[in-house]
């Protein structure tokens, strides 16, 4: 998913760019061919096949899953969890990004490294670790919360936490470079003109990192919708209660309901691809 979101280089003025364009020799075409072939077999063709399989029997498969209340519930749940996670990750992500770029404090490098853990740790490990802390019976913190009437594991709260965890760095990694590039001077100018911290953020910082945030949100949304491993462990995978769309795909696939699996997978992919397309259409021509 992330591969398709690599940002195009800033649009240079055509006249300036032309002088530097190398002549297109056979090597250029060879490299293009290799890249296109690679992406075709790795990304385009498999994704296309999911779509094709979905419509093998016309709209029957799609209709079937959209009329099954349990699957509709799973789709709802997936969207709900994804939206809550994206909101949390956006608010925290922007805050942490500003902290990382604009302030100096002891332990900054450590925090920076820590933020990459969710990307490098397998989601299954994330799920297991959350169970260890918040598990209702044996968790380190879970029984206390449970006695207050708060169930985390095998409930939506835990699923949101798992999703937030795995998608945590995506907004930050998009926003940090933009913040660094924009620099501090505009903010300082705003302060000297009388703006307080909040006014400076809302009127100056936020508009200048807008596109970084939007990319981060789209990436997080795609990642959150598709999260499987961590959610599978913390959700308990109860049909009609805590089963999300990706879990439905696995269940259907294992039960030889290939049509249903493809149709659900197609819907998941559709949302992700649609959000990417919407962003690339909305994005202004001039870079940020």
């Amino acid at each position: 998913m992330a591969d398709t979101l690599v940002k195009p280089a800033p649009v240079k003025k055509a006249s300036a760019g032309k002088a530097w364009t190398r002549k297109r020799g056979p090597v250029t075409y060879l490299i293009r061919l290799v890249v296109v072939t690679y992406l075709f077999f790795l990304v385009a063709w498999p994704v296309y096949l999911v779509g094709q399989n979905t419509f093998k029997k016309g709209f029957d498969d799609l209709r079937a899953i959209l009329t099954d209340p349990d699957i509709v519930h799973a789709l709802h749940l997936s969207v709900e969890i994804a939206i809550i996670s994206v909101i949390i990750n956006t608010v925290f992500g922007v805050t942490i990004s500003i902290l990382l770029v604009r302030y100096r404090f002891p332990g900054k490098r450590f925090l920076n490294a820590l933020l990459d853990v969710p990307l490098s740790v397998s989601p299954v490990v994330v799920g297991l670790s959350l169970v260890l802390v918040y598990g209702g019976r044996n968790g380190w913190f879970g029984p206390t919360l449970e006695s207050w009437g708060l169930q985390i594991i095998f409930a939506e709260a835990g699923m949101v936490m798992a999703t937030v965890f795995v998608a945590l760095p995506l907004v930050i990694r998009e926003v940090v470079p933009v913040l660094e590039e924009v620099g501090e001077e505009q903010e300082q100018a705003a302060r000297s003109l009388g703006a307080n911290a909040w006014q400076t953020f809302r009127r100056i910082t936020l508009p200048s990192i807008k596109w970084g945030i939007i990319y981060g949100v789209v990436l997080s949304l795609a990642r959150s919708l598709g999260e499987f491993g961590a959610v599978k462990i913390v959700s308990g995978n109860v049909l009609g209660l805590t089963r999300t769309a990706p879990l439905v795909v696995e269940e259907k696939y294992l039960n030889f309901d290939k049509g249903g699996a493809y149709a659900t997978a197609f819907l998941l992919a559709l949302v992700a691809v649609a959000s990417i397309i919407v962003v690339s259409v909305l994005r202004p021509k001039e870079d940020r």
Binding site: E185, Q186, Q188, A189, A190, R191, S192, L193, G194, A195, N196, I204, P207, S208
Partner: peptide, 20 residues
């Protein structure tokens, strides 16, 4: 006093124009 309370006009070398 924080900068916003000093009523000082500041001009930067690289303009610090609000780009948006």
């Amino acid at each position: 006093l924080p900068p916003q309370k000093r009523n000082v006009g500041f001009v930067f070398q690289h303009y610090a124009a609000f780009k948006h």
